[in-house]
């Protein structure tokens, strides 16, 4: 019985040992260390980005992507050119026939 009382008293004492605890303070010059870390973080962010870009897999993939885009645009511009040239040929034929018709008209008009 006495031992139980001792045990309960001890547990209460331990559970209440944080009563009146004071706030722990950060080490002096915390702000200075924080600013140094912030600068480092900014540098490491750029390092991380450049590191990512310079990775062989990323570099090769981006290069392939750029080449593919070039090929795509080249092919597209070629097909556009061929459509344009067909349209141009049609126009030329049309204008030639117009000249021809006008000349025949003129010819017809000259003759009495």
């Amino acid at each position: 019985m006495k031992q139980e009382l001792n045990r309960d008293e001890w547990m209460d004492r331990v559970l209440n040992s944080l009563d009146g605890v004071e706030r722990a303070q950060a080490q002096p010059w915390f702000y200075t260390r924080l600013m140094a870390r912030l600068k480092k973080e900014e540098t490491t962010t750029w390092e991380r980005i450049s590191g990512l870009i310079s990775r062989p897999s990323v570099a090769i993939t981006s290069l392939c992507l750029v080449l593919l885009m070039n090929v795509f645009f080249l092919l597209q511009s070629d097909s556009d050119n061929s459509i344009n040239s067909v349209a141009q040929t049609d126009q030329v034929v049309e204008s030639e026939s117009l000249i021809a018709s006008s000349s025949s008209f003129d010819y017809e008009n000259i003759t009495p």
Partner: peptide, 27 residues
């Protein structure tokens, strides 16, 4: 800073880790 440090210290119970966390929090 003390509020953040004390909270972190109460949870992780290692002063150097609490300092590290406090810095991370403000970053």
């Amino acid at each position: 800073q003390d509020m953040v440090y004390n909270t972190a210290l109460g949870i992780v119970q290692v002063p150097s880790d609490a300092e590290d966390i406090a810095q991370e929090v403000f970053v």
